[in-house]
C-alpha cells in the first residue's frame, strides 16, 4: 500500500483512540467539531452518572505503525499558545491506521501540589506507549485534580503555569 490518504489515517486513528481510551469504562466520550481544539471530550462517570470531570483529547494520526510520534519544541510552543485559555486537563494520543500501539503525552497536565490543584503545560516533546497501567494512572491523576479543585472552592478558576 502506498502512502495512505489523510482521511483514512485520520478516521482510523480517531476510531482506535476512542476504542482504547474507553476500554476501561467509567466514562463517556463525545466527538467535538474541528474548531474546538480538542477532538474528543472524555467525561468521567460514576455508576453511569456524569461527573462533569472532563479530559480533552487531541488525536495525532500517524501514517505508519512503525512511526514513533514526536513533537518539535516549536510545535510545543505553538500548542501552548493554542491552549492558553483552556481550564481543564488535555492530552494528546497518537494512533496509526493499524491501531496496535498508541502513544500518549500530556498537553495540560493536572497535578496536586500541597493540596492545591495545578494545571501545567507539558514541556516534553516525546510520547509514552499507552498501556492499561498508564491509562489507570492518567484517569487517577485527572480524578485527583478534580477532587482537589472541589476542595479548593475559593479558587474556582485556576491559572496555568
Amino acid at each position: 500500500m502506498g502512502s495512505p490518504q489523510p482521511w483514512y489515517v485520520g478516521v482510523r486513528a480517531e476510531a482506535h483512540a476512542v476504542l482504547r481510551l474507553t476500554s476501561r469504562g467509567g466514562l463517556e466520550v463525545a466527538r467535538l467539531p474541528g474548531k474546538a481544539g480538542v477532538d474528543l471530550l472524555l467525561t468521567l462517570s460514576t455508576d453511569g452518572e456524569l461527573s462533569g470531570r472532563h479530559l480533552g483529547v487531541v488525536v495525532k494520526p500517524r501514517a505508519s505503525e512503525a512511526d514513533v510520534p514526536r513533537l518539535t519544541p516549536r510545535s510545543v510552543r505553538r500548542e501552548r499558545a493554542q491552549f492558553a485559555s483552556t481550564t481543564f486537563p488535555v492530552c494528546m494520543v497518537s494512533y496509526s491506521p493499524a491501531g496496535e500501539l498508541g502513544y500518549f503525552r500530556w498537553i495540560i497536565e493536572p497535578s496536586v501540589e500541597n493540596g492545591e490543584p495545578v494545571l501545567g503545560y507539558a514541556q516534553r516533546t516525546h510520547f509514552e506507549p499507552i498501556t492499561d497501567a498508564l491509562l489507570d494512572g492518567v484517569f487517577a491523576q485527572v480524578d485527583a485534580w478534580y477532587d482537589a479543585r472541589r476542595a479548593d472552592g475559593e479558587h474556582p478558576v485556576l491559572g496555568l503555569r
Partner: peptide
C-alpha cells in the same frame, strides 16, 4: 449507553 454506542460506531 452513549459509551457503548460510541464504541460501536468506532468499531
Amino acid at each position: 449507553s452513549d459509551l457503548i454506542g460510541a464504541r460501536g460506531e468506532s468499531r
